[in-house]
Design a protein around this nucleic acid. Structure first.
Lengths: 122, 122
DNA sequence: GCATTTCACTTGTAAAATGCAAGTAATGAT
DNA sequence: ATCATTACTTGCATTTTACAAGTGAAATGC
């Protein structure tokens, strides 16, 4: 269900990098082909990890949001970030320090951010 | 690096289900083809997540063990188990209860088990 | 109000990964 | 000596992925 190259990266980009639209995701994960991205968004929607809404400010766009099920992947992704940092596939050092400093707070912040964002619109 | 269908399942079978040999893994993950298993074991060895040793009691066999890097995936897998349990792809209920009861202890137990196992042989 | 650009995709096709069935060499069991 | 087991490999069909290009609808610029 998440056992492919892109699905978890898409969730990560939404959760940790603020990606909300198709083009956001294409830029975050430069390297994912548009047909692959479309397919993965469809599958993640079908499995209830993300949901799509029309963008009220631009009818061409769609806004992708994490569902509760998707947000619950935060601990998984967080541990992956720590693992990668420890065994040096490392990317974002600031993020790692933040997680290491207070993991519980980091996770709570993610949940809070999404609670706000979703009550604001969807 | 772990973004394929089988790699993490192999690590899970070794960490959580006691798989140590090629046939163990084939039986745990019934469904993986032998060429795929061989290929993934090769790649996991190349990336330093597992290591292979000859089996002293049977020269046909090889014993696969997790390296430190592999053992460090325990938190990731643990969170995945919890996520799956919460969103019902559920398998092993007893394991989930054990993790929920005392996650830190569960992780410490995994590390202790592997420390013993590896000092005993490889 | 008409041309241009942006956005979220789709389509076609080549390349790569996967899955399946069968086979092999070395070792162990009887 | 024979047969079974173990850890693979090989060949090939099928599926998935990647790349390049295209589409339609809506927004933007002038």
């Amino acid at each position: 269900m998440l056992g492919d190259r892109w699905s978890l990266l898409i969730v990560r980009d939404m959760m940790l990098r603020g990606a909300r639209s198709f083009t956001d995701l294409q830029m975050c994960d430069e390297g994912i082909a548009s047909n692959m991205l479309a397919d993965r968004l469809r599958k993640l929607t079908a499995t209830g990890i993300i949901a799509a809404e029309p963008d009220p400010s631009d009818a061409r766009k769609r806004v992708y949001v994490l569902t509760d099920k998707g947000i619950d992947l935060a601990p998984v992704l967080t541990e992956m970030v720590l693992w990668a940092a420890a065994h040096e596939v490392t990317g974002n050092r600031a993020l790692v320090r933040q997680i290491e400093h207070d993991k519980a707070r980091f996770l709570a912040d993610i949940r809070r951010r999404w609670a706000n964002e979703r009550s604001a619109s969807g």
